[in-house]
Design a protein around this nucleic acid. Structure first.
Lengths: 147, 147
DNA sequence: AAAAAATACATGCAATTGCATTGACATTCA
DNA sequence: TGAATGTCAATGCAATTGCATGTATTTTTT
């Protein structure tokens, strides 16, 4: 059974993330922009450049279920922000590339997303606190110690 | 625009919470138990004792949307773990009380939930790190500084 | 006291998500 | 090589969620 400090850290982790993401999603919605997940996709696809990125790589980077990525890409493609073309090297997979409109949308989203993060996280902690926090959270994601 | 430490803290907060909650939800599901939200409800209702607790108070404690609570309570009630009786003091509201089966379920869930938290959080950090983490996360949830 | 506003909760409907399966191609193995 | 297995992605269907609204009750206003 976990001790008190573990319970406290767990609870606050849930609350803090919930509050922070609600704030950011609400800011995007208020600005008439798509949800955060679209930003994550656009950013990765833009970073991948001309070569594009495969859906499965996106899936691993964003930690979404396979069908989640599949449907998310369908919507973003339908909206004209990315294009999917099946790979010449591997017939099963596809290269996803960002469009000009996609780059523009990502920028417009960042104009809202950035300040929202600043408000939810940046303004609440000092720089050194933010570093400490990032470091501790990083440890939580690290591979299991045991078995 | 947020600086690097803010971005890092934000990203790791999202990842760490996502990983931690996935781990816990999976543990519950593997054990054939209901989702975490049920535990939160059962715990609050159990704490409220004989007097019970109103749906709206639960809503505020758990930070769920009104319709979320309404439907969650319907399911838990249908499963026999709580009972709802409309309040004598306020005809609009209801007193929610835990049943014996509910208390038992909460205990069974804790037997899985506790160790899962321990694994996801407790085992990754020292006691003092956990305290530091909890403290920093607490600050994130604190009321806005500005406006 | 009657009317208006606010509060507590439920619910119809559309959109999203999760699960399981399928289809298409690629790789491995006998 | 051809059969079995593995990988990448899409999708039908059921369950869940979000939004807007509805119903009932209480509180406030005039």
């Amino acid at each position: 059974m976990p001790d008190e400090t573990t319970e406290a850290a767990w609870t606050r982790l849930m609350r803090a993330q919930g509050a922070a993401i609600s704030h950011v999603e609400a800011a995007l919605k208020d600005a008439g922009l798509p949800p955060l997940a679209w930003y994550d996709v656009l950013l990765e696809v833009e970073r991948a450049g001309k070569a594009g990125i495969r859906a499965i790589d996106l899936q691993q980077k964003l930690l979404l279920p396979q069908y989640g990525i599949s449907r998310l890409l369908s919507k973003i493609e339908a909206a004209g922000y990315i294009s999917r073309q099946s790979s010449t090297e591997d017939g099963r997979s596809q290269e996803i590339v960002i469009t000009a409109a996609g780059r523009q949308l990502r920028r417009r989203m960042w104009a809202v997303y950035g300040p929202a993060i600043e408000q939810a996280v940046g303004s609440k902690l000092t720089a050194s606190e933010r570093e400490t926090l990032a470091g501790l959270l990083e440890k939580l994601t690290s591979p299991r110690a045991d078995a």
